[in-house]
Design a binder for these strands. Structure first.
Lengths: 134, 134
DNA sequence: ATGAATGCAAAAACTTTGCATGACG
DNA sequence: CGTCATGCAAAGTTTTTGCATTCAT
């Protein structure tokens, strides 16, 4: 059970809700899920976890670096498992589809820009709004 | 009164609330204001505008391209006048200070990336989280 | 005059919190 | 066993909406 060691490494007690939520994020068909999405998926799977717990756990996971939180539209937040390497997102404004991409060039430029202003880059959020080219 | 023609150009009826809100965004000390910020500033200025109207008007302004909406933290949205050229933002995570910057290189790369995936770039949101270098 | 815009208050959407109970180490 | 985590419901935030009234053209 990989999840358990992930949790321990993060300094979090291994509880049923935490394990279930982590598994859900890992196995769900959709990679980006809102707290509500996770909650509903758990309910459908017959797991009895409160919505408040889902919010609490996701926030803890974010603090622990296990998941990343995004605000694609400004409405609700979505979470995704922070496996693999860092990436940015592209949102098709018509279909709402989310595409992930990696651009070392942009990453490097961001660091340069921050440095130019006397800052160090901690983190960044980049979302491209795109439309399919006809 | 420049505001009036701006509104007319946007196809919006020239009403007192709209003019006042536009002036407020233009003259306020802070460039990035939440709906609440605008509302409070108007109240302090003795202008009697409802908060709901502020939200409605800011949303219309956004649709008209008069203002840009940002979600720096995910909590509340902030608005800024869309004068001048497009720019991105850097947020000092310690002081919450917002610095604007322009990077043609990043803009170009974004366009390239979208194209590589068969999309055209409509818009983007880039926020760097930074910390002052000691 | 007439349709659009406003203000108010109520509601909606999302997220957090208090507190008693239950589970982990 | 002590402490931390959970569930529920209540409260908090931010934003939207219904509806009667007022305003712009």
């Amino acid at each position: 059970m990989v999840e358990n060691s992930e949790l321990r490494k993060a300094g979090l007690k291994v509880t049923l809700p935490r394990v279930k939520i982590l598994q859900m994020l890992d196995s769900a068909e959709q990679r980006h899920m809102s707290a509500e999405d996770v909650y509903k998926a758990l309910m459908e799977a017959g797991e009895d976890v409160g919505l408040a717990t889902v919010y609490r756990v996701l926030t803890q996971f974010e603090a622990a670096g296990l998941v990343a939180r995004h605000n694609f539209d400004g409405g609700h937040a979505v979470f995704e498992l922070a496996d693999g390497e860092h990436h940015d997102h592209m949102v098709d404004v018509e279909t709402r589809e989310v595409i992930e991409f990696v651009s070392p060039e942009i990453e490097a430029l961001q660091k340069d820009i921050a440095a130019k202003y006397g800052f160090e880059l901690i983190d960044h959020h980049l979302v491209l709004h795109v439309r399919k080219r006809k």
